[in-house]
Protein backbone atom coordinates (compact mmCIF):
# COMPACT_ATOMS: atom_id res chain seq x y z
CA UNK A 1 0.00 0.00 0.00
CA UNK A 2 1.37 3.37 -0.87
CA UNK A 3 1.33 6.17 1.64
CA UNK A 4 -1.01 8.13 -0.56
CA UNK A 5 -3.62 5.41 -0.45
CA UNK A 6 -4.96 4.58 2.99
CA UNK A 7 -7.70 1.98 3.22
CA UNK A 8 -10.59 2.06 5.69
CA UNK A 9 -8.98 -0.91 7.44
CA UNK A 10 -5.59 0.79 7.63
CA UNK A 11 -7.26 3.89 9.06
CA UNK A 12 -8.63 1.74 11.87
CA UNK A 13 -5.18 0.28 12.47
CA UNK A 14 -3.57 3.71 12.43
CA UNK A 15 -6.17 5.12 14.83
CA UNK A 16 -5.40 2.32 17.27
CA UNK A 17 -1.69 2.90 16.83
CA UNK A 18 -2.16 6.58 17.63
CA UNK A 19 -4.37 5.82 20.63
CA UNK A 20 -1.80 3.35 21.99
CA UNK A 21 1.04 5.78 21.39
CA UNK A 22 -0.63 8.77 22.98
CA UNK A 23 -2.53 7.26 25.90
CA UNK A 24 -0.93 4.72 28.24
CA UNK A 25 -4.42 3.76 29.43
CA UNK A 26 -5.27 2.20 26.08
CA UNK A 27 -4.93 -1.52 25.47
CA UNK A 28 -6.48 -3.84 22.89
CA UNK A 29 -7.94 -7.22 23.69
CA UNK A 30 -9.34 -9.72 21.22
CA UNK A 31 -8.93 -13.04 19.53
CA UNK A 32 -5.84 -13.50 17.34
CA UNK A 33 -4.95 -9.81 17.54
CA UNK A 34 -1.45 -10.17 19.00
CA UNK A 35 1.36 -11.53 16.89
CA UNK A 36 -1.10 -12.59 14.21
CA UNK A 37 -2.42 -9.06 13.86
CA UNK A 38 -6.11 -9.94 13.83
CA UNK A 39 -8.36 -11.86 11.46
CA UNK A 40 -8.50 -8.77 9.22
CA UNK A 41 -5.07 -7.41 10.24
CA UNK A 42 -6.57 -4.38 11.97
CA UNK A 43 -3.87 -4.71 14.63
CA UNK A 44 -1.00 -5.72 12.37
CA UNK A 45 2.37 -5.10 14.05
CA UNK A 46 0.76 -3.33 16.99
CA UNK A 47 1.62 -6.08 19.47
CA UNK A 48 5.27 -5.73 18.48
CA UNK A 49 5.19 -1.96 18.63
CA UNK A 50 3.37 -1.88 21.98
CA UNK A 51 4.53 -4.92 23.96
CA UNK A 52 2.03 -6.23 26.48
CA UNK A 53 -0.75 -3.92 25.35
CA UNK A 54 -2.24 -5.83 22.42
CA UNK A 55 -3.32 -9.13 23.89
CA UNK A 56 -4.74 -12.33 22.51
CA UNK A 57 -7.96 -13.30 24.29
CA UNK A 58 -9.45 -16.75 24.70
CA UNK A 59 -12.62 -17.38 22.70
CA UNK A 60 -14.71 -15.83 25.44
CA UNK A 61 -16.62 -12.81 24.23
CA UNK A 62 -18.51 -12.43 27.49
CA UNK A 63 -15.32 -12.43 29.53
CA UNK A 64 -13.54 -10.20 27.01
CA UNK A 65 -16.11 -7.46 27.53
CA UNK A 66 -16.26 -8.14 31.26
CA UNK A 67 -12.51 -7.69 31.48
CA UNK A 68 -12.73 -4.45 29.54
CA UNK A 69 -15.41 -3.14 31.90
CA UNK A 70 -13.39 -4.01 34.97
CA UNK A 71 -10.29 -2.39 33.51
CA UNK A 72 -12.24 0.72 32.51
CA UNK A 73 -13.56 1.05 36.05
CA UNK A 74 -9.93 1.06 37.19
CA UNK A 75 -9.09 3.87 34.79
CA UNK A 76 -8.03 2.09 31.60
CA UNK A 77 -9.31 2.73 28.05
CA UNK A 78 -9.81 -0.75 26.63
CA UNK A 79 -10.54 -1.52 22.99
CA UNK A 80 -12.11 -4.95 22.46
CA UNK A 81 -11.96 -6.43 19.00
CA UNK A 82 -14.77 -8.84 18.21
CA UNK A 83 -13.58 -11.06 15.41
CA UNK A 84 -16.92 -10.51 13.69
CA UNK A 85 -19.84 -8.37 14.83
CA UNK A 86 -21.95 -11.52 14.85
CA UNK A 87 -19.98 -12.94 17.80
CA UNK A 88 -20.72 -9.93 19.94
CA UNK A 89 -23.97 -11.68 20.82
CA UNK A 90 -21.83 -13.93 23.03
CA UNK A 91 -20.74 -10.78 24.87
CA UNK A 92 -24.16 -9.18 24.71
CA UNK A 93 -24.91 -9.55 28.39
CA UNK A 94 -21.81 -7.70 29.51
CA UNK A 95 -22.40 -4.93 26.97
CA UNK A 96 -26.05 -4.21 27.62
CA UNK A 97 -26.39 -5.20 31.26
CA UNK A 98 -23.11 -4.12 32.73
CA UNK A 99 -21.39 -1.56 30.47
CA UNK A 100 -24.60 0.23 29.52
CA UNK A 101 -25.98 0.39 33.05
CA UNK A 102 -22.82 1.07 35.02
CA UNK A 103 -22.80 4.85 34.99
CA UNK A 104 -26.51 5.26 35.58
CA UNK A 105 -26.47 2.82 38.47
CA UNK A 106 -23.23 3.71 40.17
CA UNK A 107 -21.97 7.02 38.78
CA UNK A 108 -18.80 5.30 37.58
CA UNK A 109 -18.18 5.81 33.84
CA UNK A 110 -17.46 2.86 31.59
CA UNK A 111 -15.16 4.05 28.79
CA UNK A 112 -14.82 0.94 26.67
CA UNK A 113 -14.78 0.58 22.89
CA UNK A 114 -16.03 -2.64 21.33
CA UNK A 115 -15.06 -2.90 17.68
CA UNK A 116 -17.53 -4.84 15.57
CA UNK A 117 -16.38 -5.84 12.08
CA UNK A 118 -19.85 -5.53 10.65
CA UNK A 119 -21.99 -6.10 7.62
CA UNK A 120 -22.01 -8.41 4.70
CA UNK A 121 -19.39 -9.44 2.19
CA UNK A 122 -19.97 -12.02 -0.55
CA UNK A 123 -19.88 -15.60 0.70
CA UNK A 124 -19.78 -14.77 4.40
CA UNK A 125 -23.17 -16.25 5.24
CA UNK A 126 -25.48 -15.98 8.24
CA UNK A 127 -22.84 -15.79 10.99
CA UNK A 128 -20.19 -13.51 9.54
CA UNK A 129 -22.34 -10.79 7.96
CA UNK A 130 -24.58 -9.24 10.55
CA UNK A 131 -25.20 -5.59 11.27
CA UNK A 132 -25.83 -5.22 14.99
CA UNK A 133 -26.17 -1.45 15.35
CA UNK A 134 -29.91 -1.36 16.04
CA UNK A 135 -29.71 -3.91 18.83
CA UNK A 136 -27.04 -2.00 20.72
CA UNK A 137 -28.56 1.40 19.96
CA UNK A 138 -31.72 0.19 21.65
CA UNK A 139 -30.00 0.28 25.03
CA UNK A 140 -29.64 3.64 26.77
CA UNK A 141 -26.07 4.43 27.72
CA UNK A 142 -24.38 3.02 24.63
CA UNK A 143 -22.95 5.11 21.81
CA UNK A 144 -23.13 3.38 18.42
CA UNK A 145 -20.83 4.59 15.66
CA UNK A 146 -21.13 3.51 12.02
CA UNK A 147 -18.38 5.21 10.01
CA UNK A 148 -18.81 5.21 6.24
CA UNK A 149 -15.55 6.81 5.16
CA UNK A 150 -11.85 6.25 5.70
CA UNK A 151 -11.57 9.61 7.41
CA UNK A 152 -14.47 8.89 9.76
CA UNK A 153 -13.14 5.43 10.56
CA UNK A 154 -9.97 7.12 11.78
CA UNK A 155 -11.30 10.14 13.63
CA UNK A 156 -14.36 8.46 15.07
CA UNK A 157 -12.36 5.57 16.52
CA UNK A 158 -10.13 8.08 18.28
CA UNK A 159 -13.25 9.88 19.53
CA UNK A 160 -14.62 6.57 20.74
CA UNK A 161 -11.50 5.89 22.78
CA UNK A 162 -11.63 9.37 24.29
CA UNK A 163 -15.31 9.18 25.20
CA UNK A 164 -16.27 8.32 28.78
CA UNK A 165 -19.18 6.13 27.65
CA UNK A 166 -19.20 2.64 26.14
CA UNK A 167 -18.99 2.74 22.36
CA UNK A 168 -20.02 0.06 19.91
CA UNK A 169 -17.87 0.79 16.87
CA UNK A 170 -19.48 -0.77 13.78
CA UNK A 171 -16.69 -0.81 11.22
CA UNK A 172 -17.91 -2.14 7.90
CA UNK A 173 -16.03 -5.10 6.45
CA UNK A 174 -17.26 -4.37 2.93
CA UNK A 175 -15.39 -1.07 3.11
CA UNK A 176 -12.20 -2.48 4.64
CA UNK A 177 -10.14 -2.88 1.49
CA UNK A 178 -11.75 -1.06 -1.38
CA UNK A 179 -12.44 2.27 0.26
CA UNK A 180 -9.36 4.47 0.13
CA UNK A 181 -8.33 8.00 1.02
CA UNK A 182 -5.31 10.04 0.05
CA UNK A 183 -4.47 11.07 3.57
CA UNK A 184 -5.72 11.04 7.13
CA UNK A 185 -7.85 14.00 8.14
CA UNK A 186 -6.59 16.71 10.40
CA UNK A 187 -10.02 17.56 11.69
CA UNK A 188 -13.42 15.94 11.90
CA UNK A 189 -17.07 16.82 12.09
CA UNK A 190 -18.28 17.28 15.66
CA UNK A 191 -19.19 14.13 17.56
CA UNK A 192 -22.67 12.86 16.76
CA UNK A 193 -23.14 15.13 13.75
CA UNK A 194 -24.51 13.69 10.54
CA UNK A 195 -22.94 14.66 7.24
CA UNK A 196 -24.59 15.84 4.04
CA UNK A 197 -22.56 13.57 1.82
CA UNK A 198 -24.27 14.75 -1.34
CA UNK A 199 -26.50 17.80 -1.43
CA UNK A 200 -29.76 17.66 -3.35
CA UNK A 201 -33.30 19.03 -3.45
CA UNK A 202 -35.68 16.34 -4.74
CA UNK A 203 -35.43 13.65 -2.06
CA UNK A 204 -33.35 12.74 1.00
CA UNK A 205 -31.69 9.37 1.47
CA UNK A 206 -30.56 8.74 5.03
CA UNK A 207 -27.98 5.97 5.28
CA UNK A 208 -24.94 4.88 7.30
CA UNK A 209 -22.01 2.54 6.91
CA UNK A 210 -21.68 0.77 3.58
CA UNK A 211 -25.16 1.87 2.53
CA UNK A 212 -23.97 5.47 2.18
CA UNK A 213 -22.01 4.40 -0.89
CA UNK A 214 -24.96 2.51 -2.36
CA UNK A 215 -27.09 5.60 -1.79
CA UNK A 216 -24.56 7.89 -3.46
CA UNK A 217 -24.33 5.55 -6.45
CA UNK A 218 -28.13 5.50 -6.69
CA UNK A 219 -28.20 9.29 -6.50
CA UNK A 220 -25.69 9.47 -9.36
CA UNK A 221 -27.87 7.14 -11.37
CA UNK A 222 -30.94 9.30 -10.81
CA UNK A 223 -29.01 12.43 -11.68
CA UNK A 224 -29.03 11.14 -15.26
CA UNK A 225 -32.82 11.38 -15.12
CA UNK A 226 -32.58 14.94 -13.85
CA UNK A 227 -33.19 14.23 -10.16
CA UNK A 228 -31.12 15.85 -7.51
CA UNK A 229 -30.91 13.50 -4.52
CA UNK A 230 -29.51 14.46 -1.13
CA UNK A 231 -27.61 11.79 0.84
CA UNK A 232 -27.26 12.10 4.60
CA UNK A 233 -24.67 9.93 6.36
CA UNK A 234 -25.71 9.44 9.99
CA UNK A 235 -22.13 8.59 11.09
CA UNK A 236 -23.39 7.73 14.57
CA UNK A 237 -26.74 6.03 14.92
CA UNK A 238 -26.87 6.75 18.62
CA UNK A 239 -26.90 9.56 19.38
CA UNK A 240 -28.83 10.28 16.23
CA UNK A 241 -28.63 13.70 14.58
CA UNK A 242 -32.33 14.37 14.14
CA UNK A 243 -31.71 18.06 13.40
CA UNK A 244 -29.68 17.39 10.28
CA UNK A 245 -32.22 14.83 9.07
CA UNK A 246 -35.15 17.20 9.59
CA UNK A 247 -33.30 20.06 7.91
CA UNK A 248 -32.67 17.85 4.91
CA UNK A 249 -36.28 16.70 4.73
CA UNK A 250 -37.33 20.33 5.00
CA UNK A 251 -35.33 20.98 1.82
CA UNK A 252 -36.50 17.94 -0.14
CA UNK A 253 -39.91 16.94 1.26
CA UNK A 254 -39.23 13.27 0.60
CA UNK A 255 -37.42 10.67 2.70
CA UNK A 256 -35.96 7.25 2.03
CA UNK A 257 -33.99 5.55 4.80
CA UNK A 258 -31.63 2.74 3.85
CA UNK A 259 -30.25 0.21 6.29
CA UNK A 260 -28.27 -2.94 5.66
CA UNK A 261 -29.81 -4.62 8.70
CA UNK A 262 -33.36 -5.86 9.08
CA UNK A 263 -36.28 -3.44 9.12
CA UNK A 264 -38.09 -4.55 12.27
CA UNK A 265 -37.35 -2.09 15.05
CA UNK A 266 -34.23 -0.90 13.28
CA UNK A 267 -32.40 2.35 12.67
CA UNK A 268 -34.46 3.09 9.55
CA UNK A 269 -37.62 2.64 11.59
CA UNK A 270 -36.26 5.02 14.20
CA UNK A 271 -35.39 7.71 11.65
CA UNK A 272 -38.85 7.49 10.07
CA UNK A 273 -40.48 7.59 13.46
CA UNK A 274 -38.61 10.76 14.36
CA UNK A 275 -39.36 12.49 11.07
CA UNK A 276 -43.03 11.47 11.25
CA UNK A 277 -43.43 12.73 14.81
CA UNK A 278 -41.22 15.81 14.66
CA UNK A 279 -41.39 16.78 10.97
CA UNK A 280 -44.67 15.46 9.60
CA UNK A 281 -45.48 18.80 7.99
CA UNK A 282 -42.19 18.75 6.09
CA UNK A 283 -43.15 15.63 4.17
CA UNK A 284 -44.66 15.74 0.69
CA UNK A 285 -44.93 11.95 0.52
CA UNK A 286 -45.03 9.02 2.95
CA UNK A 287 -41.50 8.29 4.22
CA UNK A 288 -40.03 5.06 2.90
CA UNK A 289 -37.43 2.60 4.06
CA UNK A 290 -35.31 -0.01 2.37
CA UNK A 291 -33.65 -2.72 4.41
CA UNK A 292 -32.33 -6.22 4.09
CA UNK A 293 -34.79 -8.96 3.34
CA UNK A 294 -36.19 -10.58 6.44
CA UNK A 295 -34.22 -13.80 6.42
CA UNK A 296 -30.81 -14.66 7.81
CA UNK A 297 -28.03 -13.28 5.62
CA UNK A 298 -27.60 -15.86 2.83
CA UNK A 299 -24.29 -17.39 1.81
CA UNK A 300 -24.36 -17.38 -1.99
CA UNK A 301 -23.33 -14.07 -3.59
CA UNK A 302 -26.36 -14.17 -5.88
CA UNK A 303 -28.69 -14.40 -2.88
CA UNK A 304 -26.64 -12.04 -0.73
CA UNK A 305 -26.57 -9.38 -3.46
CA UNK A 306 -30.36 -9.34 -3.44
CA UNK A 307 -30.76 -9.71 0.31
CA UNK A 308 -29.07 -6.39 1.01
CA UNK A 309 -29.98 -3.02 -0.45
CA UNK A 310 -27.82 -2.07 -3.41
CA UNK A 311 -27.41 1.02 -5.59
CA UNK A 312 -29.90 -0.52 -7.96
CA UNK A 313 -32.56 -1.28 -5.34
CA UNK A 314 -32.02 2.12 -3.71
CA UNK A 315 -32.51 3.77 -7.10
CA UNK A 316 -35.74 1.80 -7.61
CA UNK A 317 -37.02 2.83 -4.21
CA UNK A 318 -36.15 6.43 -4.96
CA UNK A 319 -38.02 6.35 -8.26
CA UNK A 320 -41.09 5.05 -6.48
CA UNK A 321 -40.72 7.69 -3.78
CA UNK A 322 -40.43 10.47 -6.35
CA UNK A 323 -43.71 9.37 -7.94
CA UNK A 324 -45.68 9.28 -4.70
Amino acid sequence: MSKTSITYLEAIRLAQQKALAEDPRVFIYGQDIGGFGGAFKATKNLAKEFPGRVLDAPISEDAMVGLAIGAAVEGMRPIVEMQFADFSTCGFNQIVNQAATLHYRTGTPCPIVVRLPSGGTPGSGPFHSQSMEAIYAHYPGIVVMTPATVEDAYTMLLEAVALDDPVIFCEHKFLYYHLKAEKLPGEALPFGKARITRPGRDATVVAYGAMVHEAVAAAEELSHDGYDIEVVDLRTVRPIDTDTILASVARTGRLLVVGESWPWGGVAAEVISRVATEGFGLLDAPPQRLNAKETPVPYHPALWGTHRPTASSVANSLRQLLEL
Binding site: F27, S60, D62, A63, G70, V73, E74
Partner: peptide
Protein backbone atom coordinates in the same frame (compact mmCIF):
# COMPACT_ATOMS: atom_id res chain seq x y z
CA UNK B 1 -20.83 -15.21 36.62
CA UNK B 2 -20.50 -11.80 35.00
CA UNK B 3 -18.44 -10.36 37.83
CA UNK B 4 -15.64 -12.92 37.50
CA UNK B 5 -14.25 -11.39 34.31
CA UNK B 6 -15.04 -7.89 35.55
CA UNK B 7 -12.77 -8.41 38.53
CA UNK B 8 -10.17 -9.85 36.15
CA UNK B 9 -10.32 -6.53 34.30
CA UNK B 10 -9.60 -4.58 37.45
CA UNK B 11 -6.59 -6.77 38.08
CA UNK B 12 -5.40 -6.36 34.49
CA UNK B 13 -5.56 -2.59 34.92
CA UNK B 14 -3.33 -2.84 37.96
Amino acid sequence: GAMVSTVCGGLMAK
